[in-house]
Design a protein around this nucleic acid. Structure first.
Lengths: 147, 147
DNA sequence: CTTGATGCAAACACTTTGCAACGAC
DNA sequence: GTCGTTGCAAAGTGTTTGCATCAAG
């Protein structure tokens, strides 16, 4: 079963309708397979089906996030990014100077979150980790920088 | 040296001016000593010095974040929150249902981030961890929820 | 005195909502 | 046929910016 089918199934399971727009949005998300902003996604979706509106993208993303098949993530700055959870789990190293982002495939705290969850009686469904720092390039360029 | 003084000193060190507005903002932040949104901070600051405008709050927060004495954090949703880094390091458990947030004092990945940093040549200066899930109350209320 | 900082309001960017029409089930 | 969903545009948020004035250094 493909990622797209899994996601459509999640909609069905929730008693929601599979519309052409939703299908296009989900297929696009699956193809992009990376963190995308709503705007990027909208553009890509419209390349496929031009008449889809931004509201549908936002509404669909909202639904998918609630169904836990899409993860929303705010990389410190401007706008939220979205990614299918089936795309796998990963975290980010964000450079404070140039804002370059490196994806880390390995998960830092599967066990730690479990432990924390138990401690607080939380059912842990996911986690977001962002590590901030200075990337190799920027360390060379500006070893000490205040302005 | 108090938190406020440390923060003011950071401004001085950066060659920036210590104005009444900035002082009020920093003092308020120190008093609140928790994650606050720009709006909350503005309100609290205006209770102290009514004529301070929102722009000054945003601009000052921006400066303080850049000086690394305030940490900005986007708890998954609406608006960014800010906290003085001197308030200590902690993470969050966020309930996906009721959006209640629990602060976790213990750090989950001091060592892990170090290792990651070395691996990618990153100078790690901080990290943000948000664990999502369902809080005890919401687990009882809605064991399975799709709508 | 110089230059950064301020307050105000207008401008912005991103997201949400109202509504009539549409289409999945 | 019902009711969830759509696209559009307008309305909301939260944040940033332009500008003349002000005050820290």
């Amino acid at each position: 079963m493909t990622t797209v089918e899994q996601t459509l199934q999640a909609l069905r399971d929730a008693g929601l309708k599979i519309t052409a727009s939703r299908r296009a949005i989900i297929e696009t998300l699956a193809e992009m397979n990376r963190h995308v902003t709503a705007a990027e996604l909208l553009e890509a979706v419209q390349a496929r089906v031009p008449e889809i509106g931004k509201a549908s993208v936002y509404r669909t993303l909202d639904v998918l996030v609630r169904l836990n098949v899409v993860q929303a993530c705010t990389l410190g700055s401007t706008s939220t990014t979205y990614i299918l959870t089936t795309a796998g789990h990963h975290h980010h190293l964000v450079c404070l100077v140039c804002h370059r982002t490196i994806e880390i495939d390995e998960c830092l705290l599967d066990e730690a979150t479990e432990a924390i969850g138990r401690k607080f009686g939380f059912l842990v469904e996911g986690h977001l980790v962002e590590v901030y720092g200075k990337c190799p390039d920027c360390m060379q360029t500006s070893p000490t920088q205040t302005t």
